[in-house]
Structure formats: structure tokens, C-alpha cells
């Protein structure tokens, strides 16, 4: 009654660790994320996002899910003072930063609805967990060290929650500060722990785009605790973050 499975979907490695589930539930997660990729990828010519961006469908024709995602993008654009933008000038509409967190949170909701209570999904470094992997123990979620992919700089212990990290160490400085149109700078890594992955992922992305003002802003968002590494290799974190020794 336990399974671990990994699949490459949405351009990301997705791992599913089900302590009280089977391959059937793992496939449910993968099927859903595959569907999301088909519908929301800005890289697919026939996705709903691409069709909307190119004006092949009108704003009134989009699905309730995409409407929800776009509303989330707008919310975080407003909250971050424009640092986070799904539509940058001269670029394709790219709600990916919000889509991933929302889709993986929805996958976790599907598992819960199927009766599972102990699981962990990791989608390209964004993590959502439920219950305990073993009795009395939280899920131990490492935060990757910004300079060393083989090490972690902190470990948080969580039960029902989500951890998302936004950083520039993998693809260079690819996150754009929507306020300037230039790559965001000031932070090496921005991690947010929140009750759900939709919140954690969007908040981490927006905070990273904001640069040095991001950590304090993220810590003010409802339900969010932060761990940030600035470009001077200093750590700033919420004192309440459940860091294990």
C-alpha cells in the first residue's frame, strides 16, 4: 500500500510518494497533470492559453479553470505591485508560475478526495504534503542550497502543507521583474511555506521577482512563512518556520 513514482510532465520531473496509496492513485495525478499541460502550456500551439493569447478564442469562451488561473495571476500582480506579471510586453501570455502550483495542489486535492491521507508530491521542486510519512514524524523537506544541488541549506518539518522555491540557479536569471522588465536580482533563492501550493508557489515567484523587498513582503502574506537567501549569501527567514535541527 505504498508507492513512489516519477514521471516527466509539464517539462518537469514529477515525483509522487504515496504512503497509503497505489499505482492507480499515482496515475490519477499524472493523468491530471498531463491534461493541464495540454490545456495550459504556452508552448503548445493548440493549448487554451495559446489560443487565448493569439485571439483565436475570446475571453468569454475560456474554461472556468483558466479563468480561475488568470484571476490568481491578476491577484498576485496587484499584491506584488506589478513585480509578478503573467503577460510581459513582447512576450507570450505565460501563467505558468501560477499554473504549476495550482495544478499540483489540485492533484493533492484529488488524492485527498480518493481517501489518501499520507502523501507527498514534488513537481520540479515545488512540494505538497499530507499527513505523516511515518507515525509521529513530519515530512522532512530540504531546501536546496543555492550553490550546491547535492546539499540543502535547511530542513523544514511539515505535515499538511506546501513548500515552493523560486531561484535563479538552474536556468540563470530567467524571472523577470515586471516593474522594470529586467531580470530580477537581489535574491539567490526564495522559499515559501504555506497551507497550500497555489499560495506557496505564486508567493515565492512574485517575491523572487521583487528582489530584496520580496522576503519581507512574502512574510506578510496570509499563512506564509519564508526562507530567503540573498545574493550576499545571507539567510532571512520567518522565526516561526518549522526548521528541524
Amino acid at each position: 500500500m505504498a508507492i513512489t513514482a516519477v514521471r516527466q510532465l509539464m517539462g518537469l520531473p514529477i515525483s509522487v510518494d504515496l504512503r497509503d496509496g497505489t499505482q492507480r492513485e499515482a496515475d490519477m495525478v499524472f493523468d491530471w497533470l498531463h491534461e493541464v499541460d495540454l490545456r495550459f502550456s504556452p508552448f503548445r500551439l493548440d493549448s487554451e492559453v495559446t489560443r487565448l493569447d493569439e485571439g483565436r478564442i475570446g475571453a468569454e469562451e475560456i474554461s472556468a479553470d483558466l479563468l480561475h488561473v488568470l484571476a490568481l495571476c491578476e491577484t498576485y500582480e496587484l499584491r506584488s505591485g506589478g513585480a509578478f506579471k503573467a503577460k510581459l510586453p513582447g512576450r507570450q501570455l505565460d501563467p505558468n508560475a501560477v499554473v504549476k502550483g495550482w495544478a499540483v495542489q489540485r492533484a493533492a486535492d484529488l488524492l485527498r478526495a480518493a481517501g489518501l491521507r499520507r502523501f507527498c508530491i514534488n513537481a520540479g521542486g515545488d512540494v505538497v504534503t499530507a499527513g505523516e510519512p511515518t507515525d509521529g514524524e513530519p515530512w522532512r523537506v530540504g531546501i536546496r542550497h543555492p550553490d550546491d544541488s547535492q546539499r540543502v541549506c535547511a530542513v523544514v518539518g511539515i505535515r499538511d502543507g506546501a513548500v515552493a522555491t523560486s531561484a535563479a540557479y538552474e536556468r540563470g536569471n530567467h524571472i523577470i521583474d515586471g516593474r522594470t522588465g529586467l531580470p530580477a536580482f537581489g535574491l539567490l533563492s526564495m522559499t515559501v511555506y504555506a497551507p497550500d501550493l497555489t499560495t506557496a508557489d505564486a508567493t515565492a515567484t512574485a517575491a523572487f521577482a521583487m528582489g530584496i523587498d520580496g522576503p519581507e513582503w512574502a512574510a506578510q502574506q496570509p499563512g506564509c512563512l519564508v526562507h530567503a537567501v540573498d545574493s550576499n549569501h545571507r539567510v532571512f527567514r520567518s522565526p516561526e518556520l518549522p526548521v528541524l535541527s
Partner: peptide, 14 residues
């Protein structure tokens, strides 16, 4: 920098 025992790792994996 730790080599801690963890179940999973959060990071900007691409």
C-alpha cells in the same frame, strides 16, 4: 550547507 536526511527537496529544479 547540510547533507541531511530528507524525504524530498524543494528547489527551482528545471
Amino acid at each position: 550547507a547540510q547533507s541531511a536526511d530528507v524525504e524530498t527537496v524543494s528547489g527551482a529544479t528545471q
